[in-house]
Design a protein around this nucleic acid. Structure first.
Length: 508
RNA sequence: GAGUGCGUAGCUCAGCCGGUAGAGCAACGGACUUUUAAUCCGUAGGUCCUGGGUUCGAGUCCCAGCGCACUCACCA
């Protein structure tokens, strides 16, 4: 085959054969006793002419340059890069011949002495080399790296190797998730797993993905929220419970939305939304510290400060301040909506208030600020404020106009819950409504769920904020893309073959 | 969903008014014992995203499609 894809691959296959001819396994074997690059760098003396300890490292060749009877390279693992140097006069023929078969992208084990080079760079002076995996793929350009966005997303593995900031950012994500789990463990929360396949896609207002169970011949939905099962577990006796996991929403894709994304929802029996505010401050400041070593972080030109406590402001007060009228004054709100070009006729007043709030207030919330006490009608799973059934005990945490967390004092009145599930607000499309009857959930509440606080946080968005990342795709290892098409040789095609047009998605 | 932009060698990119397809890196061959994107000499490498159209002639202009990005609207 004369394809260019295989032109460079052929050169690598030739080297692979040479490695075999040396009696070595080009795919490598178990390799014990190595230390990480970061550790090796720590052990390397700073002074020239001073020998450090003998070490063993393992990693991928990131640079490999030939200058006659010397060879310099960089070996990288997830802790960093370190230079290696091979001198013809210091190694046997076996090492030298293997070295000649190696190139950028290969994974090697290295034994050698730590010492700085003449130019002062920490270096492993090689005594022995081990091939641990031959790479058959041509690496991207060594100076510019991999720049093409599509290739970065489709071949994330390559992106992670040759754009070091990608791996660094994803490790921050992992540390943030660890910090959240550690914080919750400190408060005696249990992490649980609940069903992903739902017969009723409840707990949020979103369009679900639909699938089908063959043996049972029933439609099923991928979950859009974690809420209703976690509350059932509180009924069952798990007092503090959370799940940090994937949910699925069949909606648009852009720089802040991926069809599958990670949420944490947590519930605390005998708490309320005030307990959730304290916990939110602790969770987010700990997460920020885990990622950045401080409770502040750069966000573009701004500095975000997550040092507790966060400001608290009533929804109604903010509404009066920024919208310019009382939200209880229905006539004034409708006039204002009209002036703002917001549809209000035939729509429930709380739906209109919500739209006006989003249009006039949200951008002004620098924060971090807890917006508390929401109009009740938009919150069918939330307990009403004592003495004021028009207000729900709910907060949303905003920072620079972005919503970071959403929390409630949870509704545990089965009679009111049943009624709210049956109430479809005027002016809300089906998919925008959280009112989806779930008889089993009402039955569970009849058994009795303790008064509780509950909170949800979008993990991907939190990671974006804490890592100064402005696209959700860059905090998700494998964001959704349209499928790539390949020919029978595994060569990527630009155009789908005839007859492979997309299968119609249902649109409910 | 609408608008705008991009798609050229493995990678990063040039390609002007429509006139033989270019560079750097990478690859291959050679020189080189302290390099840092090493350097130097040489060789090879192209479905210019796909399909139509205009033209004597299209990477370039026009139409349609595919993919990706950005902006706007909606969901977190």
């Amino acid at each position: 085959m004369s394809s260019n894809v295989t032109r460079l691959e052929a050169a690598r296959l030739e080297k692979l054969e040479k490695i075999k001819a040396l009696g070595l396994d080009p795919w490598g074997q178990r390799f014990d006793g190595h230390i990480h690059v970061e550790e090796a760098r720590n052990q390397c003396p700073e002074e020239k002419g001073v020998d450090g300890p003998a070490v063993r490292i393992a990693g991928r060749i990131a640079r490999w340059s030939d200058s006659g009877k010397l060879r310099f390279g960089h070996v990288q693992d997830y802790t960093g890069r370190i230079q290696v140097m091979i001198s013809r006069k210091d190694v046997g023929d076996d090492v030298w011949s293997l070295m000649e078969c190696l190139e950028r992208g290969d994974i090697v084990g290295v034994d050698g002495i730590l010492r700085v080079s003449n130019t002062g760079e920490k270096t492993v002076f090689v005594t022995k080399l081990h091939i641990l995996c031959k790479s058959l793929a041509q690496p991207p350009e060594k100076w510019h790296g991999l720049q093409d966005t599509e290739t970065q997303l489709r071949q994330r593995y390559t992106d992670m190797i040759y754009n070091p900031q990608v791996l660094e950012r994803m490790f921050k994500r992992l540390r943030i998730m660890d910090a959240i789990r550690a914080t919750l463990k400190g408060h005696e929360y249990f992490e649980v797993e609940t069903p992903v396949l739902h017969a009723i896609a409840g707990g949020a207002a979103a369009r679900p993905f639909v699938t089908h169970h063959n043996a049972l011949d029933i439609p099923l939905y991928l979950r859009i929220a974690l809420e209703l099962h976690l509350k059932r577990l509180m009924v069952g006796g798990i007092e503090r419970v959370y799940e940090m996991a994937r949910v699925f929403r069949n909606e648009g894709v852009d720089s802040t939305h991926n069809p599958e994304f990670t949420m944490i929802e947590l519930y605390q029996a005998y708490g309320d939304y005030e307990s959730m505010m304290d916990l939110a401050e602790e969770l987010i400041s700990n997460a920020c510290r885990a990622a950045n070593g401080a409770t502040t972080v750069q966000w573009g030109d701004l500095t975000l400060d997550f040092t507790p406590p966060f400001q608290r402001a009533r929804y109604g007060d903010l509404f009066r301040e920024h919208a310019g009228c009382d939200m209880e004054d229905e006539e004034a709100v409708r006039m204002l909506a009209h002036r703002l070009g917001i549809e209000h006729q035939g729509r429930h007043i709380d739906v209109v208030i919500n739209d006006v709030f989003e249009a006039t207030v949200e951008d002004k919330l620098v924060g971090p600020v807890f917006v508390i006490d929401y109009p009740a009608a938009m919150c069918p799973l939330t307990k009403r404020k004592a003495g004021n059934p028009a207000i729900a005990e709910r907060f949303e945490l905003f920072i620079h106009g972005m919503e970071l967390a959403n929390a409630y004092t949870e509704l545990n009145d089965p009679l009111l819950q049943d009624e709210l599930f049956r109430t479809q607000l005027q002016g809300l499309a089906d998919e925008d409504s959280m009112a989806k009857m779930d008889h089993d959930f009402v039955r569970a509440l009849k058994v009795g769920m303790p008064a509780a606080g509950g909170m949800g946080i979008g993990i991907d968005r939190l990671v974006m904020l804490l890592t100064n990342t402005h696209s959700i795709r860059d905090v998700i290892f494998f964001p959704l893309l349209k499928p790539e098409q390949f020919d029978e040789h595994g060569v990527s095609l630009d155009e789908p073959p005839p007859g492979s047009e997309a299968i119609d998605q249902q649109d409910g």
